[in-house]
Computed example of a mutant assay.
Amino acid sequence: MRVLAAMSGGVDSAVAAARAVEAGHDVVGVHLALSAKPGTLRTGARGCCTVEDARDARRAADVLGIPFYVWDFAERFTEQVVEDFVAEYAAGRTPNPCLRCNEKIKFEALLDKALALGFDAVCTGHYARLSLVDGRPRLARSADEGKDQSYVLASLTAEQLRHALFPLGDSTKTEVRAEAARRGLAVAEKPDSHDICFIPDGDTRRFLTNRLGERPGRLVDDTTGEVLGEHEGVHGFTVGQRKGLGIDQPARDGRPRYVLSLEPVSGTVRVGAADRLAVTGIVASRPVWPSGLPLDGPVECVAQVRAHGGTAPAVAELEPDGARLAVRLREPLRGVAPGQAVALYRPDPAGDVVLGSATITATS
């Protein structure tokens, strides 16, 4: 196969490309330039897609003996990931930019261009297992549970997955680093990037305030209706948040307060006790089915609402119009917010299989 290897400049994508070469594929490496000012993004292990990363990716491609290119996707990344992130927070929702990047950049923009150029597949360093069963994609958790990225890939369609390769799915991070060292790849010990790549200092509230400005509102006790303080905008909060609320007076019962809900129109942030965060029902829209098969009737499954953690046994059912998904959790989850994705898994000893995913619109 002709394979386009997306090379971020990190160890995972470098080893994934190396394995694609070793498997006998005709591999070309490409680094995605996602920032108009790439030199400003990396601070230690924070951020990604910098000039430094592009150079690391090129060096890895040289070691592997494959052609290498840099493609400028900065404008599209800004429009479809960064601006979407800002708009979602302004609307009182909590988006996952990594999921959005995989969906819109790596497996829409990049894959579309790759197919147009005659490539058969895009290869990435994601930790997830992907196979074909009876001609249908089967996306499952990786062997390394701590690095599993199937959640942020669960929004991909069956057609996209038919043109994807995830060579690291059966490996652990430790094994990948050791392999990189054996292959002479200089990125073997390079720190993983973390947090949000376009917010390298990790200060999401300041980033959003710089773009949205101050939008004053009130912090309100959800039980008593008492006004506890003022804030500069609902975009500075997420459901389940405890720290940084700016409330001086303690709760009457002495227990910590958490953000329970956000009301962007009125600018109200409602806070209360931790037990008020418990969610047992989820409604989600725009469902996607990685295998191409929608749910057929109520299905026992495992629901996941965060990239790492936030799982519970559940019963999920597609509503008659096919546009919404109703999920009843067998065990309550905390900190579930509109804008997040819910991914559904079928338990499997060899790695839970992704059934589908959708965007959370309401909880109960």
Rank of each mutant, 00 (worst) to 15 (best):
S13H: 01
A14F: 09
V15H: 12
A18Q: 12
A18V: 08
G24A: 13
H25V: 14
D26E: 13
V28N: 00
K37G: 07
G39F: 12
T43H: 05
T43Y: 09
R46N: 05
C49T: 04
C49L: 05
A57L: 05
R58N: 01
A61R: 09
L64T: 04
G65Q: 08
F68H: 13
Y69I: 04
V70L: 05
R76H: 10
V81P: 06
D84Q: 00
A90S: 14
R93L: 01
T94K: 01
C98V: 10
L99G: 09
C101N: 08
N102M: 02
K104C: 03
I105P: 11
F107M: 06
A109Q: 14
L111I: 00
L111A: 04
K113E: 13
L117Q: 12
L117Y: 01
F119D: 11
C123S: 03
H126S: 08
Y127Q: 02
A128R: 00
D134H: 05
G135I: 00
G135Q: 06
G135M: 06
R138H: 10
R141K: 13
D144I: 09
E145C: 12
S150H: 10
E159Q: 13
E159Y: 08
Q160K: 11
R162G: 12
H163M: 07
L165E: 00
F166W: 08
P167Y: 06
E175Q: 12
V176Y: 05
V176L: 05
R177M: 00
R183D: 07
G184L: 11
K190G: 11
P191A: 02
P191K: 13
I196C: 01
C197W: 08
I199F: 03
P200W: 06
P200R: 15
D201Q: 15
G202T: 11
R205I: 12
N210I: 10
R211M: 02
L212A: 13
R215H: 15
R215I: 02
P216I: 13
G217H: 12
R218T: 09
L219N: 09
L219Y: 02
E226W: 14
E232C: 07
G233I: 14
T238C: 01
V239S: 11
R242P: 01
R252I: 12
R252E: 15
D253Y: 05
G254F: 08
G254E: 09
G254P: 04
R257S: 07
L260M: 11
L262V: 15
L262Y: 00
L262E: 01
P264I: 05
S266D: 08
T268K: 05
V271T: 07
R276N: 11
A278P: 04
A278L: 14
G281S: 15
A284Y: 00
S285C: 06
P294Q: 07
G297M: 03
V299M: 07
E300R: 06
A303P: 02
V305M: 03
V305I: 09
R306C: 04
H308R: 07
H308M: 10
H308L: 03
P313H: 11
V315I: 08
A316I: 15
R328K: 08
L333A: 14
A341P: 01
A341E: 09
P347Y: 11
D348P: 01
G351F: 12
G351P: 04
G356C: 04
S357P: 14
S364E: 01
